[in-house]
Amino acid sequence: MRSLNAAATVGAERDEAIRRAVGREAERRERDLASLTAQCDALVRSSSEVRYMINADWSVLAQLSGGGFIPDTSGGNANWLEEYIPEEHRDLVRAEIDRAIRAKDTYHIEHKVNRVDGTTGWALSRAVPLFDEHGEIMNWMGAASDITDRKASEHAQRVLNEELAHRMKNTLAMVQAITTQTLRQAASLEEGRVAIAARLSALARAQDILTQANFAAADIRTVVAAALAPHQGAAERIVVEGRRIDLASQQALGLSLAIHELATNAMKYGALSNDEGRVSITWGLVEGVLTFDWIESGGPLVVDPPRRGFGSRLIEQIVGAYFDGEGRIDFEPGGIRFRLTGKPSSS
């Protein structure tokens, strides 16, 4: 009897030891699971603003932590698609859901989203399926990041590229016109080469101004100064006066070419071809209308030419069109006068 009691005692002690060991192992595993869960949660929170859980067929959003980006959901939400996704992107989201479910694959998409503040933003959303023991999807765990700023930057870059391409085409068209018309009227290839080089240099100086201004706008004072730079020898006889007015890119290019043509003609035949002549350059803006004047005085007697050359047509027709206005040259005996009227795009 005594031996039976001893055996029972040993058995009980062994069972207790096993229970304690199992309990310690269970506690260890619970701690490990809690630690892994915390690490997983920290990883998600450090890499995204939104965390969510949704059922197998994506019909009910179980819970969502929006992180201040989109509204939270703590209970089942069967209207999540209408509440969170703008109508224009709902079909995109539905298509990706269908694909992910059929393939039992990661849901991954960039889409617009309705934000907490009532505005529309962009989210990068990823969700992975959780499977049961039979390999069927039980639910999905997902995370999303606010990519609104990135999408805005990408859009701005596309707009900039399109604008640069447009301006490049306009510039090349202008270069083609300058080259073709100059060669057509040149008395020799050398004369044409020199004239083309000078006109393209004027174009390049204006382009430099636009590049420094990020192609947004160019101050007319800077455009005038750059166009007159090759004629610094006569700077003391050129009076420039006018307020700051911003010009669009094509307007800056056109005005630069006009000033180049006027200054070149003045140096060769007009007010800057002698020692007494003067040039007055003034401009102003009244009720949104720009008036730009080039007035020569004190130079040789001016005779109205029987035929207008490319330079004159460029000044009057092309430049005037850039300002949706008019350019006019008057060959008055006392000196050439040019007036440009129009509307700068920034006014």
Results as ranks from 00 to 15, higher is better:
residue 131 F to Q: 07
residue 132 D to E: 01
residue 133 E to W: 00
residue 133 E to D: 11
residue 133 E to P: 00
residue 133 E to G: 08
residue 134 H to P: 00
residue 135 G to W: 04
residue 136 E to D: 12
residue 136 E to F: 00
residue 136 E to T: 05
residue 138 M to Q: 14
residue 138 M to K: 11
residue 138 M to L: 15
residue 139 N to W: 06
residue 140 W to L: 03
residue 141 M to D: 14
residue 142 G to W: 02
residue 144 A to H: 02
residue 146 D to V: 05
residue 146 D to E: 08
residue 147 I to R: 06
residue 148 T to K: 11
residue 149 D to E: 15
residue 149 D to S: 14
residue 149 D to Y: 11
residue 151 K to T: 09
residue 151 K to E: 14
residue 151 K to N: 11
residue 151 K to V: 10
residue 152 A to D: 13
residue 153 S to N: 13
residue 153 S to E: 15
residue 153 S to D: 14
residue 154 E to Q: 09
residue 154 E to T: 00
residue 155 H to K: 13
residue 155 H to P: 04
residue 155 H to N: 13
residue 156 A to H: 07
residue 156 A to V: 01
residue 157 Q to T: 09
residue 157 Q to G: 01
residue 158 R to H: 10
residue 159 V to W: 03
residue 160 L to T: 07
residue 162 E to H: 06
residue 165 A to E: 13
residue 167 R to W: 12
residue 168 M to L: 14
residue 168 M to T: 13
residue 169 K to I: 15
residue 171 T to L: 14
residue 171 T to S: 12
residue 172 L to I: 12
residue 173 A to Q: 13
residue 174 M to Q: 13
residue 174 M to R: 15
residue 175 V to G: 05
residue 175 V to S: 10
residue 176 Q to S: 15
residue 176 Q to K: 14
residue 177 A to M: 13
residue 179 T to E: 05
residue 180 T to F: 12
residue 180 T to Y: 13
residue 181 Q to K: 10
residue 182 T to Q: 02
residue 182 T to S: 02
residue 185 Q to A: 13
residue 185 Q to W: 07
residue 185 Q to N: 09
residue 187 A to G: 11
residue 188 S to I: 05
residue 189 L to W: 04
residue 190 E to W: 01
residue 190 E to M: 04
residue 190 E to V: 07
residue 191 E to G: 14
residue 192 G to Q: 01
residue 192 G to A: 06
residue 192 G to L: 03
residue 192 G to K: 01
residue 193 R to G: 00
residue 193 R to L: 08
residue 194 V to R: 10
residue 195 A to G: 02
residue 195 A to Y: 01
residue 196 I to R: 00
residue 196 I to Y: 00
residue 197 A to T: 07
residue 197 A to Y: 01
residue 198 A to T: 03
residue 199 R to A: 06
residue 200 L to E: 03
residue 200 L to P: 03
residue 200 L to H: 08
residue 201 S to I: 01
residue 202 A to I: 02
residue 202 A to E: 01
residue 203 L to F: 05
residue 206 A to N: 14
residue 206 A to T: 13
residue 207 Q to A: 13
residue 207 Q to T: 14
residue 208 D to E: 13
residue 208 D to P: 01
residue 209 I to A: 08
residue 209 I to L: 15
residue 209 I to S: 06
residue 211 T to R: 12
residue 212 Q to T: 12
residue 216 A to E: 09
residue 216 A to G: 02
residue 216 A to P: 00
residue 216 A to W: 00
residue 216 A to I: 08
residue 217 A to Y: 02
residue 218 A to M: 04
residue 219 D to T: 10
residue 219 D to P: 09
residue 220 I to K: 01
residue 221 R to N: 15
residue 222 T to H: 09
residue 223 V to I: 11
residue 227 A to Y: 07
residue 228 L to A: 09
